[in-house]
């Protein structure tokens, strides 16, 4: 199994989370007025609201992605962890 494939799958999942919370859409349209309110205030509000949305959406997506990321990291590191755990344990047992 290629680590690259696992990482790609994780990134894809994070991308989907960002899409499903409309975070990426908001980021793409950061300067586009909401509801076609083309007044100066409308444009200003749009930037503020969209920025807030991008921030919170991004945070929310990242929190939601934590299990996936942890799983991926563990998945990649597990063989190494197992090896280290076994060696340390055996060394300690033999030492005692």
């Amino acid at each position: 199994m290629r680590g690259q494939q696992v990482v790609l799958a994780t990134l894809k999942r994070i991308h989907f989370l960002l899409e499903s919370t409309d975070t990426l859409t908001m980021a793409r349209n950061l300067t586009v007025p909401l509801f076609q309110d083309n007044t100066g205030t409308g444009k200003m509000f749009a930037i503020i609201l969209r920025s807030i949305w991008v921030w919170w959406g991004g945070m929310f997506s990242l929190v939601m992605a934590i299990p996936t990321v942890v799983k991926t990291i563990l998945f990649l590191l597990l063989p190494v962890l197992v090896a280290i755990g076994l060696v340390v344990n055996l060394a300690n047992l033999i030492g005692t």
Partner: peptide, 22 residues
């Protein structure tokens, strides 16, 4: 995790689990 027979079993179990996933 570092200094017992149970720990050895645990790591062996995790190793088997990891290889099974692969």
């Amino acid at each position: 995790l570092t200094n017992s027979v149970y720990g050895l079993l645990f790591w062996l179990g995790l190793g088997a689990f990891s290889y099974a996933t692969y």
